[in-house]
């Protein structure tokens, strides 16, 4: 049995600080080239390998990440 997760980033509130990046155990997240309304590159799950561990959400200073998880 494995865990499969999804994150939802509140793109307009992400400040592109990159604090979350180093704490993703599956290295599935990265900053994207696009920018939000404030001009910040924002974070996304780009490899689809999220396990829903919540690390990124817990460490994000702006609380912009929501995490969902299912057992598969």
């Amino acid at each position: 049995m494995a865990l499969k997760g999804e994150i939802v980033v509140d793109i307009e509130k992400c400040k592109g600080c990159e604090v979350c990046l180093a704490h993703c155990p599956t290295e599935t997240i990265a900053m994207v080239d696009a920018v939000n309304g404030k001009g910040y590159h924002y974070m996304q799950d780009i490899h689809g390998k999220c396990t829903g561990c919540t690390n990124c959400a817990v460490v994000c200073p702006d609380g912009v990440i929501t995490v969902y998880r299912v057992k598969v």
Binding site: G5, V19, A57, D62, G63, T66, Y68, V70
Partner: peptide, 20 residues
């Protein structure tokens, strides 16, 4: 399936703090 969501005890205002 929700496992983490910003608490409703925080308002929806964008934090005035610097990134990070």
């Amino acid at each position: 399936n929700l496992v983490y969501k910003k608490t409703s005890m925080m308002t929806n205002n964008v934090l005035s703090y610097c990134p990070g």
